[in-house]
Amino acid sequence: MIDLSIDLGFLKLKNPVLAASGTFGYGLEFAPYIDLNKLGGFVVKGLYFNAREGNPPPRLVETPAGLINAIGLQGIGVKKFTNEILPRLLEFRTALIINVCGDDEEEYARVAEHLDGRKGISALELNISCPNLKQDGRCPAMDPDSTYRVVKRVKNATSTPLITKLSPNVTDITAIAISAHEAGSHALSLVNTFLALAISLEDRKPKLGNVFGGLSGPCIKPLALRMVYQTSSRLDIPLIGIGGISSGRDALEFMVCGAKAVQVGTANFINPDATVAIIAEIEEFCRQEGISRVEDIVGTLKETVKKSRL
């Protein structure tokens, strides 16, 4: 029997695989396809205080081994979520993480306050890294001070553990990671999507209604892996790796680079059972490699370069 459990300190997961926010709806959408109880957990779609319209279509464009989206965080708002969805999620025995959004620090805090102390919520994931809200793709996670302020403000508003979701659209992700850590974030999830553009050559027009979007999918995996490794090399804080994970091997690569857990995103679109398949593949790899406890693989990358160069 292989021990797949992961201890994040503030939260114990039955296995390292979580479904990523924005790719898993509010969780219930996937109940017809998989047993949600098998997951390490799932992160629901980002919630603002009020319902939100989202961006005009087209909202999606496919690229080689990738997907650019500009949904714009359309959603039902946190009150409708706690009234109508949350009670239905309580039956599942898996970690439930709520992705928290805000137009400003106050809104993040209001959403967190509304969720504070509610049964069934394992952690909040602070979405300070969505690139689809402003024309130039800006977000708090692109600046260490803004990151610090949002995390600190939410930290003061809730006793629920905080995971801060980082943006890859920065020069040095470790500087942002340090800010989030210093402001009191319990863990970091990285990375959100890469700010991207796709155009129609014939029409000389952007393909997305929002012009820019966020790139995800297998094509971003090496970039995300590099950022996870850089961050794990500099900081001692639980990391959750995200970026193009579509197999057990992908997930384990992130863990070797220092992630204690992973989130599966775009792969959920291609196969609704992707998360469950990945868990089975992780277990199978451990069996073949004689690993009895999956957590032992975390941060085992053998270095060929000195950490000072990272």
Binding site: E29, F30, G54, P57, L67, N69, I71, Q74, N268, F269
Partner: peptide, 26 residues
């Protein structure tokens, strides 16, 4: 018709302006 990400209601990528309860929403 639309480009779709998931086809199962999870990604909100395939929206169209529709009147619901008299109000147009995606």
């Amino acid at each position: 018709e639309s480009i779709m990400g998931c086809g199962i209601g999870a990604c909100w990528g395939c929206v169209k302006r529709i009147r619901k309860d008299g109000i147009g929403t995606w």
